[in-house]
Amino acid sequence: MKKISFLFIYILVTISFSCSGPTITDDLLDGEVVFDPSLYNPEQFLVSAKYPIPTPADLNKHIILAVHGYTATTFEWQEFQDWSVTPSYRISQVLLGGHGRDYNAFKNSTWEDWRSSITSEYEKLIALGYTRISLVGSSTGGTLLLELVNSGYFNNHLHPKNIFLVDPIVVPSNKLQTLVGIIGPMIVYVETDQTAAENNYWYRFRPYETINELNNVMSIVRKGLENGMTLPSGTYLKVFHSLHDPVASTTSSVLIYKGLKTSSGSKIEVQLIYSDIHVFTRLNLRTKVTLLQKNNQLDVFNQIANKLN
């Protein structure tokens, strides 16, 4: 009888908490007023939209798809876009599915939805005739790119020239993230501590369902790495990771190094960055930026650009 009572109380508590969502105001990306600008102005962000009928000169350019992380938007790679003045490559800033919209759109999205924006733009570029395409992913963006390698997506599509990963997440630094599968229905969502300015570009509230999705795709990639993954032929890959990343454990890059090989069986490249911020290539809206952080950012931008030129 006691056991039934405890079960009943647990279900009651879970249901009552599940009914309570966060209080979302119009100044948040989570609301229904602020959206990622790529949704209503895609030609400013996607190469396929900006050049729907590319000339031979356009097709000769190297295209790099820049993929942001969990809860973020195209803003995460805007600094790379602003920094890149070279005419030899173009950046296509992808907005992940379910992101940059509102809380409910995010809550109802799966990691496959997030990934679909990457494959959609990649396939549009191939269909338009581009032959030199590279990819850069930060945080979950990197995880999704690894999932594409693991799933064999590139077996049937043009092989990317380069893949760059910045603070990819395969193992979380936040120790409570692995518990969300159990306590998720009770906590419903997690609120992030971010500034008012950042509220325009990152969801403030993280529905537990999406944290589960993140854990799921991380688990798939981690198992793939445990079993061994191979890059498509001709693809170069380099990982950059903050030494004390507070979100994506740096152990993630150890696992990538151990589990991912080039098509010829060689090791991939990893560079640890003396930093304790997550996605160290994004410095805009940080409360305090040091010279070291600026140099770290420029180092990575230069390395990527040199590979594309």
């Binding site: 193992v171 630094s173 120790k175 692995t178 518990l179 159990i182 740096t250 152990t251």
Partner: peptide, 16 residues
């Protein structure tokens, strides 16, 4: 019980 600041403990050490 892991009290280290996030990013300062082994990644594959998880609590439960």
């Amino acid at each position: 019980i892991i009290t280290a600041k996030e990013g300062y403990s082994p990644g594959t050490l998880q609590p439960l």
